[in-house]
Amino acid sequence: MEPISVVTVDMIINGRPQQYEVEARQSLADFLRDQVGILGTHIGCEHGVCGACTVLMDGVPVRSCLSLAVSASGHEIVTIEGVKDLPLGQRLQQEFLEHHALQCGFCTPGILTTMAHFVAHYPKATEEEIRDALSGNLCRCTGYHNIIAAVSAVISSRHDDAKR
């Protein structure tokens, strides 16, 4: 068997600079869970459809199951553990709590990271646009309705803030 190459990666994870030795073939999701030891990033399909593993790389949602840890070197990663420190992160979490926007909670980390990016970039999004933005995150429990309501509430609260 070919020797497995090991690479040094440097990245900022949830605000903290980190350095690790990783196998070149290791996915970002496995790296975060198995090496860094933060377990909020969930693996649901490992082929980029379900969205549970979504993290932010330099502020943009990426599938950590389809990204390699080495590809994240030199970048800034935010996982669910860091969502609370994002501009609208805590408000999203609060609206999810109040709207019963999660049941089993397994898909929730990927939805929160995806939506944290969305609400920051689309402050005037319509319900249809929210649905579209959510279409890359599968949830089998909620029927999506309350997730959309929670995200809508964050967006409309931004409007209220703007009016003040």
Binding site: G40, T41, H42, L102, G105, F106
Partner: peptide, 21 residues
């Protein structure tokens, strides 16, 4: 009543304990 769920406090922070955790 529809009180906020106890479970959500951990799940919203990525602190759930699922099988892989």
């Amino acid at each position: 009543r529809s009180i906020p769920r106890k479970e959500d406090l951990r799940l919203l922070q990525g602190q759930g304990q699922f099988m892989a955790d």
